[in-house]
Amino acid sequence: MPSTSRGWVIAATFLIALMLTALPLPPWAASWRPAWVAMVLIYWNLAMPERVGLAVAFAIGLLLDVMLSAPMGQNALALTTVSFVTVANHQRFRLYPVGQQAIIVGLLILLHQLLTFLVRQFLTLQKPDPVSHWFPVITSTMLWPWLFILLRDLRRRAQLN
């Protein structure tokens, strides 16, 4: 493990993603909030699947559940599933140009939202909004290229490989 000491860079990106998720926004903007944590997770799954894998996805998901007072396991389930698909295909996804990658990420976020939608629809009494629940898919897809470049530069500067 040559780069163990630089693991804090990964932790810091997750921390910022969690903060962006907890940041209060006006109601109209809150429904457009991108799935920050899922996107950062997908990036690290693609870049270094041997370090950030399913276990990390599950742990981050639990933390997110507690932070958002969601049903315990909702985000853990969604993030672990997304992470599984990403890690299983990471060699293919990594080769795609950024635009194509954005579409793949959009589909992954769609899967993420579908899982949270199902959980909340069938396990809780608070029915999710059938329209605005899918907005994060659009914003996440549009933001992916920028996030990708940002995190890639960060990773290269921190010499994480």
Binding site: L63, V66, P71, M72, G73, L123
Partner: peptide, 28 residues
């Protein structure tokens, strides 16, 4: 995760776990 979900919804068994993790969530 699915087991946890059911445990939480049906039996409220995860309160201790939730309480422990909330210490991590508090700084954020």
């Amino acid at each position: 995760a699915a087991t946890l979900l059911i445990a939480d919804q049906r039996y409220r068994a995860t309160e201790a776990l939730r309480s422990a993790i909330s210490v991590l969530a508090y700084p954020i």
